[in-house]
Computed example of a mutant assay.
Amino acid sequence: MKVAITGSTGFIGKHLSDFLMNKGVEVHAVKREHYLPDNKSKLISLLNGCDAIINLAGASINSRWTKENKQKIRDSRIKTTRYLVQVINELATKPEVLISASAVGIYPDKEIWSERDGNYDNGFLASVCKDWEAEAKKVSTDVRLVIPRLGVVLSKDGGAFPKMYLPFRLFIGGRIASGSQGFSWIHIDDLMNIFWTIITTKKIKGVIHCTAPQMCDNLIFTYSLAKIAHKPACFRIPSVVFKIMYGEGASILTKGQKVFPYKLLNYGYSFQYPEINKALKNLCN
Rank of each mutant, 00 (worst) to 15 (best):
N39S: 08
G182S: 10
E248C: 05
A92V: 14
K231P: 06
N266Y: 12
K243T: 07
K205S: 15
V240Q: 11
I44G: 00
N62E: 13
Q71C: 00
N285F: 10
Y262N: 15
Y120A: 02
I61T: 09
G206L: 06
A160K: 08
E90H: 08
G123L: 01
E135W: 02
V3W: 10
P238S: 01
C216H: 07
L225T: 02
A134H: 08
N39L: 02
R144C: 08
C210E: 04
K70W: 08
A250T: 01
H187Q: 05
N193A: 13
C50F: 05
Q257I: 10
S17I: 05
M1T: 11
I112F: 03
S155P: 02
C129Q: 03
A229W: 10
D190N: 08
N193W: 02
I276G: 07
M164F: 12
S180K: 15
S41T: 14
F124K: 09
E135P: 00
I176S: 06
H34N: 09
K243M: 03
I204A: 00
S270R: 15
S178N: 06
N277R: 14
R149I: 04
Y120S: 09
Y273C: 01
K79T: 05
D51G: 12
Y165M: 12
G151S: 12
V143A: 05
T9S: 15
K79Q: 14
P274G: 09
S180V: 11
N193P: 03
S17M: 12
K110G: 00
Y273F: 15
V85A: 01
N119Y: 13
V30P: 01
P261F: 04
V153R: 06
